[in-house]
Write a protein that binds this DNA or RNA. Structure first.
Lengths: 187, 187
DNA sequence: CTCCTACTGACACGACTGTATCAGTAGGAT
DNA sequence: ATCCTACTGATACAGTCGTGTCAGTAGGAG
């Protein structure tokens, strides 16, 4: 059912709801305020997405498409250290705070309610990011357990730093900590 | 108002709601199901805590007390590396998964709704953990920017690893990654 | 006994939730 | 002109939300 090709109108509305979620969050949103904010109605949303869960799932798919586009746009030609630094440079940009807050919210909701429309959102993003990092590793290391540990450590430093940054906003301290973490781990 | 000394009955009920939150979460909970689960009523909860937000705040205070107790119970006599390894040993214990899921949920809610009863829950836990880690650093390093960066990196590795573990459940890979992260950062 | 405080729980209110129904419209195909 | 598909939005429903009200009870103090 979610495999169906979305119509142009569906894409248009998902984009609008996605923009709404970036500002107001998604987990606590309800249909009527969303519909009013994007200039639509609950009847239309229900017709096009079947149910609220269907809409949420469509928005999460949209969010993941955004995430994959971001990963693809990162410079993957360097080594793991360079890629990790580029990732952090992206994360620390204040303009990206909304999408990161939505990401953390969806991640946590996915952990708390694995059966809801959030499903395995958390697990999929871990896989996406680890796969991206693995592409920056030499093919010889990529398949070893040591290689998996290395990119796991890099991912942990970067996402742990993100949690810190979103809570404290102390860019200088966190950036220095993440930088030293990346450098020492990819030594 | 939250400064008042809680009555015995309040403590009893908060404990019960806290246990409920560990199983079902707190952000999405509503009064009636909670009251029924703990064998009480919404009227009682409202009388003792004033409002739902008051109850949530009391439960979050209870959760933080738990967290501080955990931090205090950790062996803080070793060096930073040893303390970090002890922290991870604690985090990786499957029996602690519920409290960690509640913690992530509250952390994310705090980021999304800083004005709600969650308030600065996220920021406070960062401070608590950083303070605990700083106590494991030599006094000479403790006050330097390099020392702050070091414990920031350790915290990032540990909490980033926690995010990974909760989503994937892959204890072996994550533990190895976190271990290598801790060792290399505290080199 | 009386009084008082702490506590209880049933009930009702208005607001909001997701969902359902359905008459109606715009636009292309035949 | 006819038909069909895609889409729209008003209206209604039953259920749940947090909150307000209020009569009533247990138990210690005087």
């Amino acid at each position: 059912m979610p495999q169906e090709q979305p119509s142009a109108r569906q894409v248009e509305l998902v984009d609008a709801v996605y923009a709404y979620a970036l500002e107001h969050g998604l987990a606590g949103a309800s249909l009527r305020p969303v519909a009013e904010a994007i200039g639509s109605s609950t009847g239309v949303l229900r017709f096009l997405f079947g149910s609220k869960d269907g809409l949420v799932q469509a928005v999460l798919d949209r969010a993941r498409a955004d995430e994959l586009a971001i990963l693809a746009a990162l410079p993957t030609d360097g080594d793991l250290r360079g890629v990790a630094e580029a990732v952090w440079t992206w994360l620390v940009d204040p303009r990206h705070a909304p999408v990161l807050r939505l990401w953390v919210e969806s991640y946590a909701t996915s952990l708390s309610q694995p059966d809801g429309p959030w499903g395995d959102f958390a697990r999929r993003t871990v896989d996406d990011w680890l796969a991206m990092l693995s592409r920056a590793q030499p093919p010889a290391v990529r398949r070893t357990a040591a290689g998996a540990a290395e990119r796991t450590a890099v991912l942990a430093v970067v996402r742990g730093g993100l949690l810190d940054l979103l809570a404290t906003g102390q860019r200088a301290r966190v950036t220095r900590g993440v930088h030293e973490g990346i450098v020492s781990v990819t030594g």
